[in-house]
Design a protein around this nucleic acid. Structure first.
Lengths: 354, 354
DNA sequence: TTCGGATGTTTAACCGTTTACACAGCCGTC
DNA sequence: GACGGCTGTGTAAACGGTTAAACATCCGAA
């Protein structure tokens, strides 16, 4: 990057605060004060400065401002992927609240890779955002936890507030805000809904050990069974990732494996439910006449296929994350909040008489 | 913001390059060179520095780096909304390519408001990103065009490359890269598909004057009709926004208005197709037995409801935008590229015998 | 022995802001 | 009329990096 070689460089460059000051016939300090409004200034001066700003089409350099000690008004969000509807909605909530509070939004994606997540957090640290919001599911082994805990402390030191959104706390000594929603409660509620309709053999699609979201949803499923004194059959828990084609695969294999030994299905999320529904239909089974189906998330596919599901406040999650982060005056605060969920009844569940 | 008040401040702060230099027993310049790799350095020095960096958990301050003349490795993207699947996929493409090229991604949303888009671009200008990518639909009146043209020139001056993604150029004198996909061609192809199946009365759902995307799709529809010498009936063009519930509304009102005067429907996008399908089913009309249905975009709902549609390379669009922007050595380059589309045949279209 | 590169390091200037401090008027009071 | 407070502005020192230019070494060649 060439410095200004000659005193009179011919290549044009964006105008700086000095240009504005010169043109308005005042000092740079005055310009800065007029623009930030940090100090009172005389009306005449103010209008001279504003005119120069307009004429030169001046915008402040965010880097210089950030360096000079003004914390950049920005919020960073780290998600698995932007296309996944759950993350998209949370991200939208973050965006909305960020804009409302006059903040810029920096986004990083991880593809679900813990290593890439750690690297991304490191990158966000360089940016000195006011908050770093980590969203969603990740397989967290001991080494990961330890490194992330270290980063968390570093973020606090740098004045950034860490927020874990929809994932469990890292530990008591790690300074972070945790915003969750009630996975276990929602799963409990919808399983109870199926049980109350008379179903006893309920297939759970999407078990995945090590991932926190499926784990807490399956916990709710099991608790509801226990509460209704229905025996728990581990063979009814099918393993698979939280994607549409996995739902299709799981259901297809299950139906190919032998006679149908369930009357209802609880899918770990709506996408899996949509995939499973397709597999059911291909085998001539209709929802809800032959098989009842329930999902989790209340996202786009649920409305399209009339799915009874658990509504999750995705966008509120994102908004809350930003709000809490900006509220906490001193970064490094630890806090914990859980948002509620509720069932949305459509027409994929039918009473079972057996 | 308090400067360091006393020579010995007690409050801890993140470590700087000076701390690293002191600890490694070298100068700051050496540390910088080792870290950026801009100059060769002795292996012994290098390892001393790297150890100090590790021990102090040092990360460089992005603002300082940006200010010192190194263009920050970042790309800015401005979209209507993050949840809308089309934008989400384009954004994902941008993200992917940005990460691949070692760039950070800044995201702004506009909610479709031209005023907010202009403000967001201004904000991005302050950030000095390498590229500013504007995605999608906007109503562009003369005043908007003129102001955006001004911003475009300012961006070029500041060294940022402007990219218009999925929207028409601003004018010949405006320095911008334009990456589009073939809306008209896609609409032409799928309308021809319906016509070849024997349909003559094809309802177009989602006309919207002033918005570029619907306008170019309806153009393709009309061209196909003309090519097949089928008379064009303006009454078959129904007006509405590109949202699912609008599709539902349009179809519902149409069916309530009088006897059904069409055998096929071409929806301006998949979401509208999904909404329309729901309205059709509620009236006892089945797809494709009673009515054939085609969409545009090939996004999530299309797979769920077995929709014949036009595949749009959303993610490729995003990737290409980033690639072209970073390729063009001198910002302010003007360039134009159009990506192709193709039909995806599922089972929502049936031959019509009349 | 002296000189001319390599090689690797330090010194110091600069990027564009913000802001503590100093200072100049002006006005009202004792 | 000297003084103190109040306003508004200017001066200059940070902020934390990068890098051109100057400067030490060391090594081989003349």
């Amino acid at each position: 990057m060439p410095r200004r070689a000659t005193p009179e460089d011919d290549r044009p460059r964006p105008s700086t605060i000095r240009d504005v000051a010169r043109r308005a016939g005042v000092s740079v300090a005055t310009v800065s004060r007029v623009l930030t409004g940090s100090h009172p200034s005389a009306p005449a001066t103010r209008s001279k400065v504003m005119r120069a700003v307009r004429e030169l089409d001046y915008v402040a350099n965010a880097h210089a401002r950030g360096l000079a000690g003004v914390r950049p008004k920005s919020v960073a969000i780290v998600v698995n992927s932007v296309v996944s509807p759950h993350y998209a909605h949370v991200a939208q909530g973050v965006q909305d609240q960020a804009v409302r509070e006059g903040r810029l939004c920096i986004v990083g994606t991880t593809g679900g890779d813990p290593e890439r997540e750690l690297a991304t957090v490191q990158l966000m640290r360089e940016e000195h955002a006011e908050a770093v919001i980590l969203v969603g599911n990740i397989v967290a082994d001991g080494a990961y936890r330890e490194r992330m805990a270290g980063y968390a402390r570093a973020l606090a030191l740098a004045g950034s507030q860490l927020v874990l959104c929809g994932r469990p706390p890292l530990g008591d000594d790690v300074p972070a805000i945790v915003v969750q929603y009630d996975n276990t409660g929602g799963a409990h509620a919808i399983t109870s809904h199926l049980l109350s309709a008379g179903h006893r053999r309920i297939l759970f699609l999407g078990r995945r050990d090590g991932y926190t979201t499926p784990e807490s949803r399956i916990a709710g499923y099991r608790q509801a069974l226990a509460a209704h004194r229905v025996p728990h059959d581990p063979a009814l828990e099918v393993e698979g990732a939280m994607k549409r084609d996995e739902g299709y695969r799981m259901m297809r294999e299950r139906l190919a494996d032998g006679p149908r030994d369930f009357t209802a299905v609880f899918a770990v999320n709506d996408e899996i439910a949509a995939g499973a529904r397709q597999a059911l239909r291909e085998q001539g089974l209709r929802v809800p006449r032959d098989v009842s189906l329930a999902g989790f998330d209340d996202l786009a596919p649920a409305a399209d296929i009339g799915l009874t599901t658990v509504h999750v406040p995705h966008e509120e999650l994102g908004r809350t994350a930003v709000r809490l982060a900006l509220e906490s005056a001193t970064p490094g605060t630890a806090r914990h909040l859980t948002l509620g969920t509720h069932i949305v009844v459509r027409d994929s569940v039918q009473p079972h008489v057996g």
